[in-house]
Design a protein around this nucleic acid. Structure first.
Length: 624
DNA sequence: AAGTTCACG
DNA sequence: ACGTACGTGAACTTT
């Protein structure tokens, strides 16, 4: 047995690294009697589903000691780790979804077995403060949390190991796979991580108590994390033949327009300086500036120069500038091939699946994000081309999606108790001649203000005003977004405030509360939402975005309880994407709608399903 | 590492 | 009194 003595917050701790069968028996005798163990794994990297991926080490610990089990050695080491993994009633894990999926894929310990026994200290910490240190927060990594809550002298275990990797001629990318399991720094830090996790947990509990973070919210977040890990494990099936075609086509398109751009002296279309210089030389005038003071040459600037509207359709207002068009097309093809098509091909697993990394509590508002191999929340939606690469789980499956209807506006009506808005949403039988596609809050508002004569343009203006309320936008921004004049918007916003006076009152109240509590506002679920001092106006948006996220979270729990988890593929803010057998798809879609239908403080929250064909792209236009 | 652009809800 | 559209992830260029 190798042992390391170390100090944590002035107290001695011991790290044990078993070497023999006898050492492993001592470990098991100790671990068997522990009601709760902190747990961590070390692996060859982050790409859990790639071939050749290995689980190297599993660590177990308490506030006083840690045991570092080298799983990679096989035999009795594997047996000992699995014995405790199956048996211990409760685990503390920092960022549990990663370790759940590692153990599920590489240690034969199912997610379904681990998740109900897990407390995730990252979830607890994020509910206290979701901000990273750069944003003025504590951070949500084990290192900043340990330094803040446990021991100011806590080492940067990951950072220091990276330095060790370099001294061994390895890199951050190769070090985790290449470091010798006997390396003392590797073993010491592997052990310290679980000791810090064990010490973090009671401090976080005390903070929750002090700040009023509800235990029900903690449980709810664990359930959401479990469901999202389930979706990550399943992944999405790719049509690899199509991915290859897509890559070829987009590269050709890019090349074609790069050649055109080069004729005008632009050899890098992504260089704003080159593009603006060449356009000026062609006699174009550029007026908009970037925050940094350079001339702006983004899509919004280039489209009019190319005589194209926002949907890239020819306007006929001027002679198109060939360079502007070439830059637009080359940049779009380039982005689509590198950010999407190439990444699909590079990250596909041996079964032809791609796995999203779902961060269930990423944004300050609690919103989820999807990062890494497959940023599925940000695939182009204006065209089916990219999403066409993703297909149903089985040949007889089709893709579907269920969206909340105008969720931000409904949440606003509910939270601010907006009487006339609520009355509109609550109308059980909206006149189909007025609302042929179902009730529409923006047309409702237009009619409330303009009467029966309200037009589609009125609708657009009041939709802008509504979004301005939800986002906290000013008159000029709303005008720019809607294309209406500032005078028109100013009048519309004033009328909006007249018919929905509760919004302004709620906004003032929330801003006052936020300031009084140090610019941290508390959502309806008790979630703490840190708000920058100079951005108090954003409190309405924080409340709405956060409540909408929690409504989706509740809907996801309803879906799981209804047996729909196996069909769920992705959460996308106000939408769930699913893959289901074609023969049952209509019934399944109805079930999804039912799970997303609920009441929020007297406002009905509703959802509508859309069924496509075999590919995800089929929901976005003409693809098969 | 910062700045710019572009993809999403 | 004034004025701020909200939240993300990722690639590429320039520094």
């Amino acid at each position: 047995m190798i042992t390391y003595s170390h100090g944590v917050n002035g107290e001695p701790v011991t790290i044990f690294v078993p070497e023999t069968d006898g050492d492993l028996r001592t470990f098991m005798d100790w671990a068997r009697s522990q009601p709760v163990l902190a747990l961590d794994t070390e692996t060859t990297g982050l790409d859990i589903f790639a071939s050749g991926y290995r689980l190297r080490t599993v660590q177990f610990g308490t506030t006083r000691e840690a045991w570092v089990i080298h799983y990679e050695l096989g035999g009795r080491f594997v047996e000992a780790a699995q014995y405790i993994l199956k048996r211990c009633p409760r685990f503390l894990i920092h960022n549990a979804p990663f370790d759940w999926l590692v153990l599920d894929a590489h240690a034969n310990i199912p997610l379904e077995s681990m998740a109900p026994r897990t407390t995730d200290t990252k979830i607890k910490a994020t509910l206290i403060d979701p901000r990273q240190p750069q944003e003025g927060g504590i951070g949500t990594g084990l290192k900043p949390l340990s330094a803040h809550y446990v021991d100011p002298q806590a080492p940067d275990t990951q950072g220091d190991l990276t330095a060790v990797f370099r001294s061994l001629g390895l890199t951050k990318a190769t070090g985790w796979a290449g470091i010798d399991l006997r390396h003392p720094t590797y073993n010491l830090y592997a052990g310290l991580d679980v000791i810090y996790t064990a010490r973090l947990n009671p401090v976080l509990d005390a903070e929750h108590e002090r700040l009023g973070v509800r235990p029900a919210l903690v449980d709810y977040e664990h359930e959401i994390a479990h469901m999202c890990a389930h979706m990550q494990r399943a992944g999405l099936v790719l049509d690899l033949e199509y991915v290859d075609t897509l890559r070829r086509m987009l590269r050709e398109e890019e090349e074609k327009y790069l050649t055109v751009a080069a004729r005008y002296g632009v050899d890098s279309v992504n260089s704003g300086a080159q593009v603006s210089e060449a356009l000026l030389a062609m006699g174009e005038t550029l007026t908009e500036q970037t925050d940094g003071g350079a001339l702006k040459v983004d899509k919004a600037v280039l489209l009019p120069l190319a005589d194209l509207d926002r949907d890239w359709v020819s306007i006929g207002a001027r002679a198109p500038n060939p360079l502007a068009e070439a830059v637009l097309r080359a940049k779009r093809a380039g982005k689509w091939v590198t950010s999407y098509a190439d990444k699909f091909a590079a990250n596909v697993d041996p079964n032809g699946c791609i796995h999203p990394t779902i961060n269930t509590l990423q944004a300050r508002t609690g919103r989820m994000s999807i990062t890494g191999d497959f940023a599925a929340q940000t695939l182009p939606s204006s065209d089916w081309m990219i999403r066409r690469a993703v297909v149903g789980d089985h040949p007889d499956h089709i893709f579907g999606s269920v969206d909340f209807q105008a969720i931000e506006m409904r949440v606003l009506a509910a939270l601010a108790d907006v009487k006339r808005m609520k009355a509109g949403f609550c109308d059980p039988d909206p006149d189909p001649t007025l609302y042929p596609d179902g009730f529409d809050i923006h047309m409702y508002t237009a009619r409330l203000i303009k009467g029966a004569a309200a037009t589609g343009r009125d609708r657009k203006v009041f939709k802008g005003a509504g979004f301005g309320k939800v986002y906290g936008g000013g008159i000029s921004t709303i005008a720019r977004q809607t294309g209406a004049t500032e005078a028109e918007i100013a009048r519309a916003v004033a009328e909006y405030d007249r018919v929905f006076p509760e919004i302004k009152r709620a906004s003032s109240r929330w801003q006052r509360e936020a300031r009084a509590t140090g610019m941290v506002t508390v959502s309806v679920t008790g979630r703490r939402l840190p708000l920058d001092r100079h951005r108090a106006y954003a409190v309405v948006n924080y409340q709405c975005q956060s409540a909408a996220r929690d409504v989706l979270g509740q809907a996801m729990i309803n879906m799981r309880d209804a047996g729909l988890l196996e069909y769920m593929k992705l959460p996308i803010h106000d939408e769930i994407v699913f893959s289901a057998p074609k023969s049952d798809a209509k019934d399944i879609a109805r079930e999804f709608e039912r799970c997303m239908t609920m009441d929020l403080y007297g406002v009905p929250v509703t959802a509508e399903a859309d069924l496509g064909a075999h590919s995800w792209g089929s929901l976005y236009g003409a693809a098969a």
